[in-house]
Write a protein that binds this DNA or RNA. Structure first.
Lengths: 134, 134
DNA sequence: GTCCGTGCAAAAGTTTTGCATTTAC
DNA sequence: GTAAATGCAAAACTTTTGCACGGAC
């Protein structure tokens, strides 16, 4: 499914994703943000197309079913950021560490597995949730 | 939802999970494996209860909706294993690396985020799928 | 004019909930 | 006997599919 034509819907979805490169958006959030109600079907199709083309990443949510999406960052500033997802509140935090690169190399050597550098996820408990239930 | 009573269903589900500590099972796989058809509802409730009690982990699947579950390993042999999930075929591979511990410490320091050592996921492409589409 | 993209409705898949029945204690 | 666990049916939710219509080219 490769979308080649320029449509108003396509433009608006991509514009919104680009304006929110630092956020991880669910399909619902994308639809709610776009005032002139674009059909869910269209958003799903567009987003899946962008995932296939490698322009955005798809991250599974932990505490509920579904996924969130994020435009890939190509600036130096946001390079090599990883994801911390709180198992309790579902919050998604960016995390930078050059140590992950070593692991990526090791997986390549040990298992011949190619790790997608943009999609490394650590689940656990965020600062706030740690406070709340102790 | 705290299950306290001992029932046949509970016993069988836990027995099966324990016997398959090295596997990541979906709800469907658990149901199919247990000959005397235990209701899906019961399996969902039991599994969620075990997740809450911290006896098993819940890992989101990448290429389709849903989750898989695995009994926590407490033996030295399986300690500190992490997960490689193929974005293409959905295969889940175990991976050991002591380098992850450094990252866990760093997340604690930088972000005050407590990473669940049993739930570290690297998405990417497995050996076979790398071969298949080049 | 052709055919791709959209959006509605419907379907498919996963997980949760309500409720009557069964079972553990 | 009481309260908890089970399991069916139905609901809730997310995602996909079929199909007719509209718009891009």
């Amino acid at each position: 499914m490769i979308k080649t034509r320029n449509t108003k819907q396509k433009e608006k979805i991509i514009k919104y994703l680009k304006e929110n490169k630092n956020k991880h958006l669910t399909i619902q959030e994308i639809q709610n943000a776009l005032e002139d109600q674009i059909g869910l079907t269209t958003i799903y199709r567009m987003v899946n197309c962008l995932v296939e083309k490698g322009e955005i990443i798809k991250i599974p949510l932990d505490n509920k079913q579904g996924f969130c999406y994020q435009y890939k960052e190509h600036t130096a500033e946001c390079e090599s950021h990883y994801h911390l997802i709180c198992e309790e509140c579902g919050d998604l935090i960016h995390f930078k560490s050059d140590k992950v690169l070593n692991i990526i190399e090791q997986a390549q050597e040990d298992k011949k597995f190619f790790i997608n550098n943009e999609k490394v996820v650590f689940y656990g408990k965020c600062k706030e949730c740690q406070k709340n239930n102790k």
